[in-house]
Design a protein around this nucleic acid. Structure first.
Lengths: 154, 154
DNA sequence: GTGTGAGTTGAAGTGCGCTTCAACTCAAGG
DNA sequence: CCTTGAGTTGAAGCGCACTTCAACTCACAC
């Protein structure tokens, strides 16, 4: 057993396509040494980075934000369990927040199923504070404009 | 008060940009009549369709799937409250599912914060059933490959 | 040594959900 | 009438997260 991984091995272990791993490298999310023949060799610790990246994506974090988070890991040494725990805790907060938002949406939607309305005038999903009512008779969508990637199919 | 809306009015009421409304029309998500001068005039019932579209997006449904759902509404008459309630109930199920998945991820992540591991070999987030262990010493990512739009920043 | 599967690169392509642009027409108030 | 803001179109562009491609090189088993 060697202590570095080829891109194919890392791909097989992490479930991430080689093309994606190269892409992550370009973005500065992972790093690799090179052999004399210019092939990538990944330290085993990169496995953990890739794991973190995929988990963070599940939570809804963009690769750019993930990079920022990873940059906060110590560069001088291999990150310890405590280092990873710190980052994971931060994502946990995001997860909680995200779950809370979806739960609220679900509860509001339940109310709407009851009345069958989905009405911009009356529905609790919209304009709960009526803070734009001054502009006219109608209400406005109060849901945040979703970023294009704001949603997750199951 | 007129009983049809210009694109600007619908945009203001729904919080959706005119360009997006035109895009939705191209995809068959909304429809509009035309004036003699070829301008769009939306029936008030289109407001509800737009509301539904935005809510469904929050839940994580692609525009294509939303179109399929909207196509199940009766074409011959203006949809009733009961029609909308049926669709909303379907999305509610998806929301529940989605919340469940995120909660599982959160709980697993909590375990990992405890051990600080995020390890592909040991972490409960990975390969919980070890069903790929036969291929070698390592485990594989068991998280579903996220679709590119699988996530939602808060 | 050699064949073969694995790896390399930069550039271009993909899919989604829009936005922007240019060039043009419409509608309504003064 | 005329001005002006709102609306029209098709085509192109954008941002993200990748994938695909072509043309090439490497590493390892035989």
């Amino acid at each position: 057993m060697h202590d570095s991984l080829t891109i194919g091995e890392l791909s097989a272990r992490s479930g991430v396509a080689p093309s994606a791993l190269r892409y992550y490298e370009r973005l500065g999310l992972v790093r690799a040494d090179r052999t004399g023949g210019n092939q990538r060799r990944y330290a085993r610790s990169e496995l953990r980075r890739v794991a973190f990246i995929r988990i963070a994506q599940q939570v809804g974090v963009s690769l750019d934000e993930i990079r920022t988070a990873l940059d906060s890991l110590p560069a001088s040494r291999t990150p310890t369990a405590a280092d990873w725990a710190r980052l994971s805790a931060a994502w946990r907060t995001r997860l909680d927040e995200r779950i809370r938002l979806l739960a609220k949406l679900r509860d509001d939607l339940s109310g709407c199923i009851g009345c069958g309305c989905l009405s911009l005038q009356r529905c609790t999903l919209y304009n709960p504070k009526d803070n734009l009512a001054a502009e006219g008779a109608g209400a406005r969508l109060m849901l945040p404009r979703p970023a294009a990637d704001d949603v997750t199919p199951s």
